[in-house]
Design a protein around this nucleic acid. Structure first.
Lengths: 237, 237
DNA sequence: GATGGATAATGATTATAATCATATTTAATT
DNA sequence: AATTAAATATGATTATAATCATTATCCATC
């Protein structure tokens, strides 16, 4: 599988990336960015970057969803973060001159803008507002990661999954037509998010359906009793 | 318990904080920092700051060890990070203008320098190198947090504790005289680091002693078979 | 050196989730 | 439409760790 190079949309009139690291750019800087970027399609399941590889630049998701995963020594996958349109990925390794500590995989067909690191660092050093924005993004990631630590360390699988479902709805939003979460994660992925097996993930979600806390519409999930889900996520059993 | 205000050591000839956020400062900036800082002793068990409070500034540990903890809704403690002399604490909330998402507790009698946020932000905005240094610290924290996510999500308690012991030795170093880890964490704290109960933490550590992977010298722990410990931390059982 | 409080150790029982096995359903591909 | 593959579902069994209970040890302080 090879990613395809496509005609890139201009950064100047792009609405998607407006909350990310580059949100502080305007006019001239935006067109400077646009000039050198590469626009690519990664098909569902394809790697955008791989753990242990050396970063060559920064990615911004134009359309699609991505999971950031780590692999344990015995081969199990852990999803450490999710990313959607407008999010940047691959900046942690880049910023501390490290190899990637995690991989990025397209959860569906995903369009990505790539900025090589020279451009990124040139802009980072020339514009203090970008540093500030970068710091903001990192602190948000750190908060998320530490919440996940607590989630996994202190809760039983049911509570963890309840919390993750609330997080997914918050992060991806809902499809207005039917109220389902705007993302289609497999049970396996949900398991990899909360540190459990696929079977247990399936069982717990089935239970939640049986107890009328959630409903399935095809592959998609709708939360129908958020108070109870929140309650589940807060208590241990 | 109230923290005591003491005569502060000068930043200008302080060796401890040389790897932290302020490591890029020199001469005039260092004395500017020194002028306004407050030096305090927090006794063992005392809070340096508390979850949900509003940050007033930045702390730098001059001497001692600190745990950063979060509390789950049902009252269980999770240690999300450890800090030692030279480390800064309390910057995450400050940097994103958030309330504290975690508390800081002195693990032993600990001396801390406090810089109010006005000074910190003044220096952060005036000196791009500090922003870069701050970014470096945040990426390191993020890497740690994501490793911990994997540790907790994918491993059994024994493997988690093995990994934490290696981390503790790496982070605190060993006391040359007897080779023990330079920190005295209670079994309870170790449990709170890896998301298990005090009893299980005690049991696992006893097993490790019985299997000659570690040795206890009073309250202190010495790793005597690191290869085996590493192996334990990598496999699941 | 005795007392009390914290920390560590250990046992018995129960709850939780992993593992292994096998269906069933759904989606993808020819 | 038929075939295959992937994803979901469910059952039985075992492994792991939580919980509850009790005892032992260490330390600080009087």
């Amino acid at each position: 599988m090879e990613s395809k190079a496509l005609k890139a949309p201009s950064c100047s009139n792009c609405a998607t990336c407006s909350q990310g690291i580059f949100s502080v750019f305007k006019g001239a800087e935006l067109s400077r960015l646009s000039e050198k970027k590469v626009f690519q399609l990664y098909k569902k399941g394809q790697y955008i970057f791989k753990e242990k590889a050396e970063p060559k630049g920064l990615f911004c998701i134009h359309d699609g969803n991505v999971k950031i995963t780590k692999e344990s020594e015995d081969g199990k996958e852990q999803i450490v973060r999710l990313a959607k349109a407008g999010n940047f990925i691959g900046y942690r390794a880049l910023l501390c001159n490290d190899i990637y500590q995690a991989s990025a995989v397209a959860l569906e067909d995903t369009y990505v803008c790539f900025y090589n690191k020279e451009i990124y660092f040139e802009l980072l050093y020339s514009n203090p507002a970008i540093a500030a924005q970068t710091i903001k993004v990192l602190t948000r990631d750190l908060r998320f990661a530490e919440n996940m630590m607590l989630n996994m360390a202190q809760k039983h699988v049911k509570g963890r999954i309840a919390e993750i479902l609330l997080m997914l709805e918050e992060f991806y939003g809902v499809y207005e037509k039917d109220g389902t979460i705007n993302a289609t994660l497999k049970r396996e992925d949900i398991g990899h998010l909360v540190g459990t097996t696929t079977e247990t993930s399936i069982r717990v979600i089935s239970e939640l359906v049986k107890d009328h806390l959630i409903e399935l519409k095809g592959k998609r999930i709708m939360l129908i009793n958020k108070e109870k889900i929140l309650e589940l996520s807060n208590r241990k059993n």
